[in-house]
């Protein structure tokens, strides 16, 4: 849910219009919209680069991990998953909420990786690497906007 639907759901529960405070918050959200869209398109345009650099950094740090074992399928899945998580981050930036990360990325992720016998500690480390290379690409202001979403994701994947 965005801040808009959240405010609407709250107002509707009480059968009232949105308060001035809620509307002001929504106005700020609209004003920041261009910045968030700009960040999302930077992420979208640089997926390959980010995933490539992120993987290299990850394999340097965690050399003993399924995706670095020489198994092509594992390696491809690792790259694919990084692209997926980055996609969820780009959604979260646009909507200004952790909801997409939580709903599609974090819920059930631990169980899934455990059942696939992929060490969660390494998945979290991989996301940390992804975060670092992403933030390197962005200006300080943009990085400050994106970082919390990565932190939420990493926290959600920690064993």
């Amino acid at each position: 849910m965005s801040i808009i639907t959240q405010a609407i759901a709250n107002a509707d529960r009480e059968a009232r219009y949105l308060s001035r405070g809620e509307l002001n918050n929504i106005s700020y959200f609209f004003q920041d919209g261009q910045q968030r869209l700009r960040i999302a398109s930077i992420l979208t345009n640089n997926v390959q680069l980010i995933v490539e650099k992120g993987s290299q950094r990850f394999w340097q740090r965690c050399s003993i991990t399924p995706s670095n074992s020489g198994n092509a399928t594992f390696q491809a899945s690792c790259l694919r998953d990084q692209g997926w998580f980055l996609r969820l981050i780009s959604y979260a930036v646009v909507v200004g909420d952790i909801d997409p990360i939580q709903a599609s990325g974090v819920k059930g992720a631990k169980e899934m990786y455990n059942s696939l016998e992929i060490p969660l500690r390494n998945v979290a480390e991989c996301m940390r690497c992804l975060k670092e290379v992403t933030l390197d690409l962005l200006s300080l202001e943009d990085a400050a906007e994106v970082a919390p979403y990565f932190d939420y994701l990493i926290q959600g994947l920690m064993p």
Binding site: F30, L37, S41, V47, R87, S90
Partner: peptide, 21 residues
């Protein structure tokens, strides 16, 4: 990922935000 058309749609939505609020 959100493609250019989607981003443009959102851009015009955000731009109309002041009007809506």
């Amino acid at each position: 990922y959100l493609d250019d058309t989607s981003l443009e749609n959102l851009q015009s939505y955000f731009r109309s935000g002041d009007l809506r609020a």
